[in-house]
Amino acid sequence: MESKFTEAYPKAPDEAREANCEKVSGMLDLMIDGEASTEEQTFFNHHIEECVSCFENHQKQKLLKGLVSGHLKRVIVPQSLVQSIKARIQETL
């Protein structure tokens, strides 16, 4: 973390900042799903460096996706299923 955001960037007017938050909030899914363009990623990453609340929202959204992808148990395919499929295919020929 550098201190550049405190000095190098003049404070944006509140309205513009809020508009950016809104835009970033609408991009959360694109970002966590890897669907954002390079331009969108740059904009997004730049904004969350400055904005704690958007940074936290991004973390939460990632966590949510991780809960499904990392914790939802997969069901085991019944061993007989492949044979049933093949048998049904042969039956209907």
């Binding site: 997969r74 069901v75 299923l81 049933s84 499929i85 295919i89």
Partner: peptide, 27 residues
């Protein structure tokens, strides 16, 4: 088969129904 069966199970929430649905799909 594995992802397909899992998808069928998550849609039907029933193992027998998932089984039927997957067989139907492959047919």
């Amino acid at each position: 088969l594995d992802p397909l069966y899992n998808f069928a199970y998550r849609l039907t929430l029933d193992e027998d129904d998932a089984n039927d649905l997957v067989q139907e799909t492959y047919l």
